[in-house]
Design a protein around this nucleic acid. Structure first.
Lengths: 222, 222, 222, 222
DNA sequence: CATGAATGAGACTTCATTCAT
DNA sequence: TATGAATGAAGTCTCATTCAT
């Protein structure tokens, strides 16, 4: 799962277990690809995939344009490598969230919503989703990859949390996917307004999370 | 306010008062701008703004590349003209939704959610939002324009609907913006999964709307 | 010589002597080509040949772009027609100058220099020469045409004036072409500085002419 | 003042201190800008600014079209860079001419006229003036730049030479600018006839210079 | 490993010219 | 005769990618 790479990336140095010679002093050459991807994420997010020039990325990574091609075969590969790298942390984050509260579904959900609200207030956390959304029409594989590995995983995790709560007697028996959308949706709306459409925050995260949970648990009917 | 055009569009001599009758034989110049914008929306949505070639748009509109420039000064102008044209209908649609159910807030909200769920299942209805999301990082003005005229309007309309319900005694007194996000969010999540990330529908719209409303009104707590 | 047209121009109306029907009231259609050439001269002079758009010319002539092509086959033809038309007046002007002063070579030359200095202070009078200079590298035929019919004619006229003066005993026997260059040169220098390079006038025409003649007749040596 | 560059030119990393010796094998990047400007001068002179294609220039410089843009931002920049580069030599040449003959104004003027006549018989020497004349209507700044730095400098130098002669008792006290025009004018007339309008030489330079000086010093009156 | 000069395909945009009306 | 919508052939400029050093 970690090794199987859907989007192959050039690895200029055989990562052979051999502690070949001395670890040298020279370059933290192993870090290069990551540095480049960091730069790529920044530039792609800022300008969009097409408008970003490989030169920009190289410059932000502090290397020459040619050097980028030592590590990645193409601009597309850069994008794919980036998304691929970002999926693992995203998936990890969401799993951490889903397991946040131990085995009480209700408090777990509370923690999850609070943490997610907090998290997605950070522009860096929303950088990858934003990028994926903007390139999705052209890179169907990336869209699919991201959906399956991040979105559907998240929905699935929340749904299963809900089901546990149902069995538990904590939650009413409703369509779990709908529940998941009720959990994610409001947070997404806010994140999009803010990070994509440039809105300024109104309410602070904790208040938003609180209201969100209140409605989620009890509804809006009097 | 409705007439004031933020993004000016070339209008080649309006051929005054021409309610001329016959659909003409060739040169139905009056329809051209709209035809071009239709084509532009299709191509932009499909490929993204940068990847779309003016040639593609011209071809889809059934005219030559040069002819596009008879009506629009640049590719950017095409985008702006398009967004501008689409904002009015979008705003109108949402207003229609918000006023869907007469003066009973509860049933109004029910109708609104049902209709919105229905509506956003149609790819064409989500085409403009999708496009806006993809160009937002580069065209801040468009992002702002769309947010103010569509998103914030929608949120405001729902929020005020909620406030009426509160005064009415139909709804509990909660943060109205949070309510609005609970109304929009789940629908948006589904639309994005489907239209942007390419997911196949699972539940049909009416079921989704029903579950959505159930949770919205009564919450998920047992 | 007058009829033989080196650069053929479309004549949409057979100029047959027939006073065909009524002279009509309608359009002074016969004037059209001239109006167009007027417009062309203005625009070409202002922007240069390439930068001038046929649309500009049409607009300045108060007609549609298509109408220009009813009278001229191409933009090049417009240029050639224009130059051709301007050559006659230019030649006529210079001949008038050369014959300005009756049969006293000295006073003729005086009048000629005075008049030419005066004349070339007018931007419109220098418009065609300026245009010819700017297109000469590309339109060799025009360059040649203009040189033979205007420049060389002028030089010839002055030279022959000089020769008459020599026979007359009024002038010393020197290279007549050199004399002609001494007559034209200073005037040209001023015209170029002013009309082409945008300099502001310093001395007024009469003073310039006077100094010019003084040197011409007596030299600068003490 | 000499360093202050009115028309900035892209300089791709000066490869510091490289007095490296060998003519290198490929990539003699240091020479590139100059090579390109040489090519540009040739093509612009031949065809005029607009009719010249960047491709032509690149081809004549022996590089690809794209490479031109590594050194110059635009076709305009190419023109400006070219003019700027040519102004210094032109100014230098004229200064050298003005100081040609030591401190005897009369012989200085004689040398100056002889040299200038000689010089402007060379097409390459007239290439830049010719170019400037052809683009002047569209590039007012270039026209002004050239006038101030070359034309007016020349006129000024000759005028001051004349004034020295006046003080000296060598020349009569006449309008010095008029004198300057009498010096330059005839040479310019010949150069234009030849290099711009394509005339064939008649008299050889030395004869022309001689006649020019004779008239200049003694006038044409018997 | 790294550089950066160089290429070449292609995009947007302009405009002379045509043609149906 | 006149219009103006439409075309299509360029032309300028950009940038991903390559390659000699």
């Amino acid at each position: 799962m970690t090794t199987g790479s859907k989007f192959p990336v050039k690895r200029p140095r055989a990562k052979s277990g051999s502690t070949s010679g001395r670890p040298k002093f020279r370059r933290r050459a192993d870090a290069r690809p990551d540095e480049i991807l960091d730069a790529a994420l920044a530039v792609f997010t800022e300008k969009g995939f097409d408008a970003a020039r490989v030169d920009d990325i190289a410059m932000r990574a502090g290397i020459s344009k040619g050097a980028v091609y030592l590590y990645f075969n193409s601009k597309d590969a850069l994008l794919r490598g980036l998304i691929e790298r970002e999926v693992a942390p995203a998936a990890h984050r969401l799993r951490a969230l889903a397991e946040a509260g131990g085995d009480d579904p209700k408090s777990t959900l509370t923690l999850l919503v609070t943490a997610a609200t907090q998290l997605l207030s950070d522009p860096r956390m929303f950088a990858t989703p934003k990028l994926v959304l903007s390139v999705a029409p052209r890179f169907k594989e990336i869209a699919q990859f991201y959906r399956e590995r991040v979105i559907d995983e998240t929905i699935g995790a929340i749904a299963s949390l809900h089901r546990r709560g149902v069995e538990n007697g904590a939650f009413r028996d409703i369509d779990s996917d709908a529940v998941a959308r009720m959990v994610i949706g409001p947070i997404l709306v806010h994140a999009m307004r803010k990070h994509v459409l440039g809105a300024k925050d109104a309410a602070p995260p904790d208040l938003r999370a609180k209201a969100h949970l209140q409605i989620l648990f009890e509804g809006i009917a009097a």
